[in-house]
Design a protein around this nucleic acid. Sequence first.
DNA 1: CTAGTTGCAAAGAGTTTGCATGGCG
DNA 2: CGCCATGCAAACTCTTTGCAACTAG
Lengths: 136, 136
Amino acid sequence: MQKYMTRQRRLLLDYLRAHPDVPLSAGQIAADMQDGPISASAVYRNLSDLEAEGKVRRLSRSGSREVFFQYMDAADCRNCLHLSCTRCGRSFHMHALGAAQLVRDVARNDQFQIDRSESVLYGICRECQAAGREDG
Amino acid sequence: MQKYMTRQRRLLLDYLRAHPDVPLSAGQIAADMQDGPISASAVYRNLSDLEAEGKVRRLSRSGSREVFFQYMDAADCRNCLHLSCTRCGRSFHMHALGAAQLVRDVARNDQFQIDRSESVLYGICRECQAAGREDG
DNA sequence: CTAGTTGCAAAGAGTTTGCATGGCG
DNA sequence: CGCCATGCAAACTCTTTGCAACTAG
């Protein structure tokens, strides 16, 4: 668990906050920051710490062995599910009411208690749908 | 893409069909079958082929670097979303009507086109909820 | 027959870890 | 000043790949 706010820690946090809606792979983050004063292992270690503190969520993309991280702006994310675009990689908050409704419906119909923080729905976002129609 | 039905292929298929509701990691499958006449690489290659044919879905578990596979009983899975229990590992089909409803709602409210085959909702299944209440 | 498949072992990608050094408070 | 965090490189885990031998149809 994090005790000291090191330069690396701050740098990483800044980086994450600057990319709020993209799930970033640890490797990608490390690569993006490799010119700065932070090593890959510091990136990995800090991401794990941040995850343990709930500041970051760890998620996987189907078919990839990479682990992705996404900064969570505290309470904001407690009641939403994430929608992640498989084309552009960005992720969005599902309408909170809809998420609540979904959780309720699944609890009732399937007797299954959804964990929002573990779950992400994949698909195509509005912009990429539009782009797709143009392309053909 | 698969052309010949080899002994290994049949073995793997049998194995998968025997475990319909558990997402199995490729490594686990390979380990379970290592005594039989099938190598790890045959397992991996066949799983990829089966995925390409839509007989198997590939999925990730948040926090794990392993890739999981789950046998899909054809058309059955076209219209459902999967609910995967983070406690016992089993996965279930979300009520088809509920899934359809969800897809519609998200399309309308979030302008996001969910891809059922990519998406899995994680949480706790009925049995594990009950077990949890007993345990404390 | 003969192209698709297999097994093996080696290569690859991504992540974790051990240890000496450095820096936060 | 003491302990936590860092950087480096080596270890690890899981998966993919190259290639010669094998086999389904």
